Simulated assay, not measured.
Amino acid sequence: MNIAKESVVTMNYTLKNDAGEVMDTSEGREPLVYLHGVGGLIPGLEKELEGKVVADKLNVVIAPEDAYGSRKDDLLKVVSKDGFQGEEELSVGMRVQLDTEQGPVVAEISDIKENDVTLDLNHPLADMTLHFDVEIVDVRTATADEIAHGHVHGEGGHQH
């Protein structure tokens, strides 16, 4: 069966940056299971997986515009240190969760100057060319329920 819209795909993957450092991998964990064609993966990877079959192995390079886009300066927010609860010492590079009107958002602290903390709300992989090694483990047709809900149910159906 070929991967097409409304296929449920199970795959192992390793994601590296241009320097060859592993950014994310399914190795040692469960494979990734996703519903194809509904925006569950970055567009560039979904396009490359279209039409593939079980046991196919791909090595895919995806430009930022087909992945997480470019970094945007307007996603840098300066907030007061007083707004943070907890005892933990704030440090550059630390990730914090913010509650916004759109729900929880993860930001990285990119700068601290006295009482001003700069939060970077850009996706951590923005501006990056992504290198994926992918192996297709399983392809099946989605159930009507999965299609209606826009994501996979049951075995291995956790969201990423």
Rank of each mutant, 00 (worst) to 15 (best):
E114V: 10
A142Y: 03
D56H: 14
I147T: 09
E114D: 14
N12K: 09
E65N: 13
N17I: 07
D73N: 10
D133T: 15
G51S: 07
S70G: 04
K5N: 07
T100E: 02
R140Y: 12
D116Q: 09
N2P: 13
T141K: 15
D133V: 03
L90Q: 05
L119Q: 00
E155A: 14
Y68T: 11
V60M: 11
D73P: 01
I136D: 00
E30F: 15
V22F: 02
E6C: 03
G40K: 15
A63C: 02
G93V: 04
P64H: 05
V33M: 09
E50C: 09
E89R: 12
G83R: 12
T25E: 12
G37C: 04
A144T: 10
T100N: 08
L76K: 06
H153K: 07
P64V: 08
G20H: 09
L121P: 01
V152H: 00
A148L: 07
I147R: 01
L49G: 01
S26Q: 05
K81T: 04
Q159A: 10
R140P: 05
S70D: 13
V117D: 00
V105Y: 10
E88S: 06
L35E: 12
K113W: 00
G103S: 11
D120W: 01
R71H: 12
P64Y: 05
A148K: 14
V106K: 02
I109D: 07
M1N: 11
K47A: 13
N59W: 05
G20S: 11
E21C: 00
G156P: 04
D145N: 06
L35P: 02
V38F: 09
G93F: 01
A67G: 15
G20A: 09
V139H: 09
D99Y: 00
T141N: 12
V152S: 00
V106R: 01
A4K: 14
E6T: 04
G39L: 05
V61T: 14
E89V: 11
S26N: 03
H160T: 08
H153S: 12
L58W: 09
E65D: 08
E101L: 12
M128N: 07
N115C: 03
D73R: 08
Q159N: 03
H131T: 01
D120R: 03
K57S: 13
P43R: 14
K72E: 12
A144D: 14
V61Y: 06
K5W: 01
G40P: 04
D133Q: 07
D145S: 08
A4I: 06
N17S: 05
L45V: 05
V117E: 01
K72D: 13
L90F: 07
V117P: 01
A148Q: 08
A107F: 08
Y34P: 01
V137C: 13
D138H: 13
L119H: 02
H153F: 15
K52P: 00
A148P: 02
D73Q: 12
H149W: 03
H36T: 02
I147M: 09
G39H: 08
A126W: 06
A19C: 04
K113E: 02
A63Q: 11
E65K: 15
D145T: 10
T143C: 09
E135H: 06
N115Q: 13
T100Y: 05
